[in-house]
């Protein structure tokens, strides 16, 4: 949902874990914004190199899980 909102995707667009941000029409700047949005939504901080390695929704989800787990 965060990804859809960020990319202003048309209603009904299918976004799955394997969806590449670039396939959804995102450029590098969009991806930065998505990661920033996720950081804020989950109250986490993503370091620079991790952020730049995210290419799919799944990548983002895995990274968030990892960060949230480490925080506990």
């Amino acid at each position: 949902d965060i990804v859809k909102k960020q990319l202003v995707l048309p209603e009904g667009t299918d976004v799955t874990g394997a969806s590449k941000f670039t396939d959804l029409g995102a450029d590098s700047l969009d991806t930065v914004e998505i990661v920033m949005g996720l950081e804020e939504a989950f109250k986490i901080s993503v370091d620079e190199s991790s952020a730049q390695s995210i290419a799919t929704v799944e990548d983002a989800a895995e990274l968030i899980d990892k960060i949230v787990s480490n925080a506990k």
């Binding site: 590449k20 670039t22 590098s28 730049q52 390695s53 995210i54 290419a55 799919t56 799944e58 990548d59 895995e62 990274l63």
Partner: peptide, 8 residues
């Protein structure tokens, strides 16, 4: 993680 085209 899926690799992405390497950024310069």
């Amino acid at each position: 993680m899926a690799s992405r085209s390497k950024l310069s």
